Simulated assay, not measured.
Amino acid sequence: MKKMEAKLLSYIVLWAMVVFFVSASDPSPLQDFCVAVNDSRIGVFVNGKFCKDPNLTTADDFIFTGLNIPRNTSNLVGSVATLVSVDVFPGINTLGVGFARIDFSPNGVNPPHTHPRASEILTVVEGTLFAGFVTSNPDNRLFTKVLYPGDAFVFPVGLIHFQLNLGNTSAVAFAAFSSQNPGRIDIANAVFGSTPPILDDVLTKAFQVDEDVIRNLQAQFRTDN
């Protein structure tokens, strides 16, 4: 009897986890597919975006090419993320998925950032990455792992996370998201490069530094300087 109760409880917990995950992703689609179009005159359904008439849909609407091409990582951080969201791949509209290719130069970093609308699973294809995320208040625990080709690491929705290329050669990873439009907030850019800028009084108190430090950081991240 106790074994049956334990088994029933495990089923209930598993079902609760599935329901929670589904409810945390994009809304469920209302039809088989909804290829996004910008022109409402040729759209017949609305589900997130205007949908292409299913009778006009072809196999070409469900393919995206070019993720095999290395990206240029000659920037200040030494990485570039190529996001494939619904805006560039209309066929994933309403399906609750998105993905990205991330290229790293030697010692390149994908800076601390968050995806406000999606969890992420990162899979390393080439190179060695140091990856981690920080939990929310009050603990702010840091979880990190060194990842090798074939390894996957998950970043829970909304949490700050990052990756660093530990090798002396380029690295490549692919990410999958639980949203067609996961969004991205780069922490440093958002705090020190906002338009208009956040008041110095706010930042000096938040970071416990003087105004010169704040202004120096703003000068690096503001695009209108």
Results as ranks from 00 to 15, higher is better:
P90S: 11
T82A: 13
I69M: 10
N75S: 08
P111M: 11
N38H: 15
P54N: 13
G96L: 09
F21E: 12
A36G: 07
S23G: 07
R101Q: 10
A59S: 14
N47F: 03
C34S: 10
A118H: 12
R101N: 10
G66W: 07
F64R: 14
A118S: 15
D53W: 12
F99E: 10
V44C: 04
N93T: 01
V77N: 05
H113L: 00
C51I: 04
D32C: 01
A36Q: 09
R117K: 15
G78F: 07
T114V: 12
S105Y: 01
N75H: 10
F89M: 10
S119M: 00
V46N: 14
L122C: 07
G96P: 07
G48K: 00
D103M: 11
V37L: 06
G43F: 08
G108M: 11
D39Y: 07
G78W: 05
V109L: 15
L76V: 08
P112V: 07
R41V: 15
R41C: 12
F50L: 06
L76S: 08
F64Y: 15
V22F: 09
D53K: 13
A36E: 02
E120R: 02
V86E: 13
N93D: 00
T82P: 01
T82L: 12
N107P: 05
E120W: 04
D87P: 00
A24M: 13
T58E: 04
R101P: 04
N72G: 06
C34A: 13
A24I: 08
P116Q: 08
F104Y: 11
V77R: 05
A118P: 09
G48Q: 00
A100W: 06
L122S: 06
F99H: 09
P90V: 00
R41W: 14
V97N: 07
P90T: 09
F20C: 07
R117V: 12
P111G: 14
T114R: 03
D53N: 15
F89E: 08
L95W: 13
I102P: 01
D103F: 11
I63E: 11
T123L: 14
G43T: 10
V22D: 05
